[in-house]
Amino acid sequence: MAPGGYLGPKLLATILFDKFGQHLPLNRQSQRFKAKGSDLSVSTLADQVGAGVLH
């Protein structure tokens, strides 16, 4: 993700489902993404969750 960019709708849906549907904390999601080669910080995920819930 580029600085100031946004996550695509499918990735955002996955993050929201894992957080609210599977009760997977954002720190564990961040670790999982990092293990797969995508460095998404907890603060980035939290910002996107906040934006996704509001829309």
Rank of each mutant, 00 (worst) to 15 (best):
G50F: 01
D18I: 07
L45E: 05
G8D: 15
D18Q: 15
A2I: 03
G21M: 02
K19Y: 12
Y6S: 15
H23C: 11
D18W: 08
P25A: 03
P9L: 13
A35M: 07
F20R: 10
L45Y: 08
A2D: 04
K10H: 10
I15C: 03
A35I: 06
A46I: 00
L7D: 05
L7A: 10
T14Y: 05
D47A: 13
P25F: 03
T14L: 14
V53Q: 06
F33T: 06
G37D: 01
P9C: 09
N27C: 12
F17W: 14
F20P: 06
K19S: 06
K10I: 08
G4F: 05
I15F: 09
K10G: 07
P3L: 09
Y6F: 14
G8T: 05
P3A: 10
N27D: 15
L7Y: 09
R32Y: 07
F33S: 07
L45S: 07
G21H: 03
I15L: 03
A2G: 02
S41A: 06
V49Q: 00
P25C: 06
P3W: 09
A13K: 11
V53R: 13
A2C: 06
A46V: 03
D39T: 03
H23I: 00
T44V: 10
G5M: 02
Y6T: 14
G50V: 03
I15W: 05
K36G: 11
Q22P: 01
R28A: 10
G50R: 11
T14E: 15
G37M: 01
L54A: 14
S41V: 00
T14V: 12
L7K: 05
K19V: 12
R28K: 15
